[in-house]
């Protein structure tokens, strides 16, 4: 499969600070790709460099084979970015903004008007079409940004933390829309702090930290290669204290029980033996594989230490 976006040794420096340290990877055409990392990892810097909002210090980025600096007209037609920061314009209403944005791309006519109507409808903005953005709530402004990013029907849609600060309803609407675009063949690149969303949606994930890619693989592979699984033990209210073996595997505890982290090659019978030795009164035991959040914490937490 050909690549939708290619990053080659992309670096960005602000004085002595290295925001991106020679990033190289590819996003396959038609994939749903997650770009994850803690705050300050360099995700937005990378996305902004791809979209032309900043100029990388070195390296190259190609979108569908076109360089984002040399051939920016083509790459900007191919890309649609929903930026992280909310944007407003006190002079124009939503429909005017969408028409103006279409104009920047040289798109006009009846079919474009219909597409704008469809975007307004799909993003539940139709009744706000004549409102200016300053009059809208944060969630509504986010919808406007999504409509603006899609107005020129880009092949690659980049969503930079699109669900930050939005309600459940919009989050649901947004993901349904994103999944639909993905099914139609669009490449979706997503950054989010909601790792359950990334796990459910993304086929492939890159985890960034301090301007570097710490892990890059399919979501399934990242989850299965994680060396631990997790055991939730529910206990009676008055239970014996944990012994040292269990204590060393404890991830978290609350009034109803404990969450333990086990090496994958460790048998459940060994775990049951430790519980038996400890003498705690067990009500229930559930075992599960790691979630993307736990993989993320393991990778980024280990690196921080």
């Amino acid at each position: 499969m050909s690549s939708a976006v290619q990053f080659q040794q992309v670096a960005k420096q602000y004085g002595d600070f290295e925001a991106l340290k020679g990033i190289s990877f590819e996003v396959e055409e038609g994939s749903f790709f997650g770009l994850l990392g803690p705050n300050g990892a360099g995700k937005s810097t990378l996305i902004n460099a791809m979209s032309g909002l900043l100029v990388p210090s070195s390296g190259s980025i190609k979108v569908h084979g076109h360089d984002v600096v040399q051939d920016y007209r083509k790459t900007r037609r191919l890309l649609g970015l929903v930026p992280q920061e909310l944007i407003s314009d006190p002079f124009f209403n939503i429909r005017q903004l969408l028409e103006l944005q279409s104009g920047y791309f040289g798109i006009k006519g009846k079919s474009q008007k219909l597409w704008i109507d469809e975007l307004l409808e799909r993003l539940a903005l139709a009744d706000k079409a004549e409102s200016i953005t300053n009059e809208l709530s944060g969630g509504m402004k986010r919808r406007v940004l999504i409509a603006m990013a899609l107005v020129h029907k880009p092949q690659v849609l980049v969503l930079d933390e699109p669900t930050a600060g939005v309600d459940v309803d919009l989050r649901h609407t947004l993901w349904e829309f994103a999944k639909e675009l993905h099914q139609k063949g669009h490449t979706i690149i997503l950054t989010t702090h909601y790792l359950d969303e990334a796990e459910a949606l993304c086929e492939k994930v890159a985890i960034m930290q301090r301007g570097e890619v710490k892990a890059l693989d399919t979501t399934d592979e990242l989850l299965s290669s994680h060396p631990f699984r997790y055991v939730r033990v529910s206990v009676d209210e008055e239970s014996a204290p944990l012994n040292d073996q269990l204590q060393s595997r404890l991830v978290e505890s609350d009034a109803s029980g404990y969450l333990f982290k086990l090496e994958k090659d460790m048998g459940m019978s060994d775990m049951l033996g430790m519980i038996h030795q400890s003498g705690i009164s067990v009500k229930d035991i559930r075992s599960r594989d790691a979630s993307l959040e736990e993989v993320f914490m393991e990778l980024t937490g280990a690196a921080q230490g």
């Binding site: 944007i87 006190p90 903004l97 040289g106």
Partner: peptide, 18 residues
């Protein structure tokens, strides 16, 4: 400066305008 402050300069910067 207003476009910079409100952030809407981004819309033009993301477009294929030289």
């Amino acid at each position: 400066i207003q476009s910079k402050m409100h952030g809407n300069l981004t819309f033009a910067l993301l477009s294929p305008i030289s």
